Amino acid sequence: MLKIHKWRHSFAIHCLKNGMDLRKLQKILDHTSLSTTQIYLDVVAQDIQRKYEKIWN
């Protein structure tokens, strides 16, 4: 079960980093609530912040 969760998480992050619409991802992951899918946006934002700091600091 843990491997499936990691795959879903990695898939979601990959999709968002490559511009997938959050609503489309919600449907693919079969989340009933958009707020569940929005959790992945925090991970993407943190990754962007780290990359920004690496370049500009």
Rank of each mutant, 00 (worst) to 15 (best):
D42M: 14
L25G: 07
R50V: 02
I13F: 01
Q38Y: 10
A12H: 00
R8T: 14
V43R: 06
S33R: 13
W56K: 15
N57D: 07
V44R: 03
M1F: 09
L29S: 02
D30L: 04
G19I: 09
E53P: 00
F11P: 00
K17Q: 07
I55L: 14
T37P: 12
E53I: 11
F11W: 02
Q38K: 15
Q38E: 14
N18L: 06
N57W: 06
Q46S: 08
M1T: 11
K54C: 01
L2F: 09
M1D: 12
G19M: 05
Q49K: 12
V44H: 11
R50Y: 06
L41G: 03
K24E: 14
Y52E: 11
I28P: 01
H31F: 06
D42N: 15
A45K: 15
K54I: 05
I55T: 13
I48K: 11
H31M: 11
L25S: 06
K51P: 00
D21W: 10
K27E: 15
K54G: 04
T36S: 05
L25N: 03
H9P: 00
K3E: 15
Q26Y: 01
H5I: 13
R23P: 02
S10L: 10
M1R: 11
H31C: 03
L34N: 11
I55A: 12
R23G: 08
N57M: 12
K6A: 02
I13T: 04
A45I: 07
K51T: 08
L29E: 03
T32E: 11
T36F: 07
K3P: 02
D47M: 01
D30A: 08
R50S: 04
T37N: 13
R50K: 14
S10Y: 06
T37W: 08
G19W: 03
A12L: 00
L34Q: 13
K6G: 04
T32R: 08
I4H: 10
K3N: 15
I28H: 01
Y40D: 05
K54E: 05
I48S: 10
K24G: 09
R8N: 14
L2Q: 11
Q38M: 13
H9L: 10
Y40R: 03
I48G: 05
V44E: 10
L29P: 00
I39K: 15
Y40I: 03
